[in-house]
Simulated assay, not measured.
Amino acid sequence: MASIKDVAKMAGVSVATVSRVLNNKGYVGQDTREKVESSILELNYKPNEVARSLFKKQSNTIGLIVPDIMNPFFPELARAVEDTAIKLGYNVILCNSDANREKEQAYLDVLQQKYVNGIIVSSNTLTADQIIEINIPVVSIDREISKGLPTIVVENKKGAIAATRFLKSKGCKRIAHIRGTDGIVNAEERCEGYKEVVDQELWFGESYIVNGNYEMQSSIKATLELLSQHPEIDGIFAANDIMAIGAMKAAHQLGKKVPDELSIIGFDGISLSAATIPELTTIVQPIYELGEKATTLLVNLMEQKSVEKTYFKFDVELIERNST
């Protein structure tokens, strides 16, 4: 593999001159530049990006920290971030934090050591003070970290209200909720939306709400317990699609037919929701647009372009399929 010294030797110039050509900094005569560029092509020289990032204190790289790569929502989001970043001239480093505070901080430290230009993060543990300490642009996605920080979210409460009202419109008389992880802003908002629709019902009680922790296995277990305690339940709003799919599996284990005996609606609109049997009715987030907007906003901040707005709340859409 050719080195920068090999390029300099072939072109008959100094290593410093080659470096100026590569980084497009400092004066280099046109004849000399053409010699260097010709030597680079002939030798198929590839600059050492690690060395360049150390020199420039930048790497043309974006960090993306997500809490659970096993949840299909986040790989779909990551795809949008990667597609957009590449179009804008940046690479992406993907980090899976498992929603663990120590792991998130460790990734923040590593990403800074790699001289990433900015970070997109989905976190319920990071604070505004931690973000400020990073001293590079950060955009929060899917959940709000703090007021005033660049943020991309959706109408969580509005979507939850629509989901619960839809179940009522389909004739459901006892509607339960499988909520997301305690303390996560979007889980709280979706639970609030559900409660707003049902909390005046005579039958409603807190036992109609169970925690599925945004995971399929947790949702299966929670749904089995829920339906055993309340066999009268005929509708379930799950706070994400993965938990809704878990609820369908639990219903199948109990011999309950979906949607004849139990209607189920999810939230997210992941691709998998259209592949289940029956296909899942869901509140669809514009996942690709979320990732695209977050990346575009981050790059504008990194490149110190004029940014008029740093908080975006996208609308959601109810897609009816066969689970209701």
Rank of each mutant, 00 (worst) to 15 (best):
Y208Q: 06
A251Y: 13
Q217I: 14
L54Y: 10
G26F: 04
A294Q: 07
E232W: 06
Y288S: 09
S14F: 03
N71P: 02
K157D: 05
M1R: 13
S39R: 00
M302Y: 03
V50Y: 01
N213M: 08
S14Y: 06
L88I: 06
I245D: 12
I93K: 02
A160V: 15
L226S: 04
I319L: 10
A160H: 13
K5T: 15
E37C: 07
I119F: 08
E303F: 03
S169M: 04
E320T: 14
I319K: 11
T276G: 01
N213R: 06
P278K: 11
E133L: 11
W203L: 07
V36H: 12
D234G: 04
K87Q: 12
K256H: 05
K257Y: 06
V18K: 00
S207E: 15
I4G: 04
A78D: 08
M10A: 05
S122M: 08
N213Y: 09
I161Y: 13
S140H: 06
E317S: 13
E232N: 03
G89T: 10
V197Y: 12
N48K: 02
G118D: 06
Q217S: 15
T281P: 09
N211M: 13
R143K: 15
I175N: 01
R190K: 03
H177L: 12
Q130F: 00
I65F: 07
N24M: 02
I283R: 11
N60G: 10
P286A: 08
V81Y: 08
T324F: 07
I134L: 14
N240S: 08
N211Q: 14
I184M: 12
Q253D: 10
K257F: 00
N186W: 07
A8M: 15
I40A: 00
I175R: 04
K5W: 10
M70R: 11
T84M: 14
K5H: 15
E289G: 03
I245C: 05
V28P: 03
E104K: 01
V197T: 11
T310G: 09
I40F: 01
N71W: 02
G89I: 05
D182H: 13
Q58F: 09
K5S: 15
L280E: 11
V18L: 05
E261M: 02
G205S: 14
G193M: 06
N211P: 10
N71D: 08
A247Y: 13
A247Q: 08
G26Q: 04
